[in-house]
Design a protein around this nucleic acid. Structure first.
Lengths: 189, 189
DNA sequence: TGTGATAGTAGCGAATCGATACTACCCGAT
DNA sequence: ATCGGGTAGTATCGATTCGCTACTATCACA
């Protein structure tokens, strides 16, 4: 009865340790949240590089994200551009140093620990993903999966495209995470 | 090459979601860290109910923990007592309402999501634990495992005891997490 | 006795973060 | 064509986190 929370405890504790490791890593001027924002921006596709997407992905309010972005912009890691197709929106992009910072994550210790798992990493990923999926579903949130596993993906003879946004997709797009993604079949990434 | 971080991303994201779910749960006056402190205090044994232990477990500095405890004490969730055997130490204990609050964690959504995994929960726990272990080892931290799986556990005819602290242990102690714990064999919980 | 390590607190400053309030813009319906 | 609801983003405020430094008290050991 009490034992079934063990996994949740572990996840929280691992999250804490990862966060803290990021904090005292090099260029320590960045808070954990900032690393996460940079990591997200380096992984998301061009339909998901907006402040709202960041706030949904990280589970923060828009106000909070707006502040963090202000700081990141002031440090030259992130740039803002107006979205030509929607005047309300702002598109975020990593600067050269922002990209460099994002690549420096996760820190060495965490990577090494993960490597120690060897082949079982896949297994862990699968389980975590399944857990995330049901948690997100219960909260009515978005999953932020890759286009390659999305039910909106259209494979036409003329090429790939997104059926929801009606936009052509390149191979490069398929791996990036998207705010609108919905799994094409249960359990897909 | 880039794929091997996927699991770390998932852990961080799940950690965020869990934290946020705790924040907006009932009696929302508590910050996520406070929940974690309460949860820890409800799970630790009598050799580990000190502020330093909390700070090591959660990966925070003692100063930070000291402040959080001050707040928790002001709200009547935690009480302090001097340790009779060591004048420097303070022993922490949950009040009745503190215990009630700790039991209300984790929130329903997370529990339901975990239940969805079914029997594979064990598997997930094992993998996470292994990951935690190597991460902690790399950082020179402490594992905080249960006495039942500790190499200092002595099973004498007179009963159980801790060989390191030279203290008798009851059955009830075996499940509680201890700051001094070292696994009795690689992979043990 | 004294020297160093450990436990805990206090105060400072920067940053997170939610809440609220506000502006700007899009879109659909009347 | 304009009205209204919904969405995107920002600004401000106050409470809290959190690392840092500095400080005291206690223990352990020589």
């Amino acid at each position: 009865m009490t034992t079934d929370h063990r996994a949740l405890e572990l996840i929280e504790r691992l999250g804490n340790l990862l966060r803290e490791e990021g904090r005292q890593g090099m260029s320590g001027a960045l808070a954990p949240v900032h690393w996460q924002v940079l990591a997200y921006l380096s992984r998301c596709n061009r339909f998901s590089d907006h402040p709202v997407a960041v706030s949904e992905y990280l589970g923060l309010t828009k106000g909070t994200v707006s502040q963090s972005l202000k700081l990141l912009e002031a440090r030259g890691l992130v740039a803002r551009r107006p979205d030509p197709s929607d005047g309300r929106r702002v598109r975020l992009l990593l600067t050269a140093s922002g990209l460099r910072a994002a690549r420096a994550f996760p820190p060495a210790g965490a990577k090494a620990a993960l490597a120690g798992l060897g082949a079982r990493t896949q297994e862990l990923e699968g389980l975590l993903h399944q857990l995330l999926q049901s948690l997100v579903r219960a909260r009515g949130g978005r999953l932020f999966g890759a286009c390659g596993a999305c039910r909106h993906l259209v494979r036409a003879p003329s090429g790939l495209s997104c059926g929801l946004l009606d936009e052509p997709l390149t191979d490069h797009d398929l791996d990036r995470i998207c705010r609108e993604q919905e799994p094409s079949h249960p359990g897909a990434e």
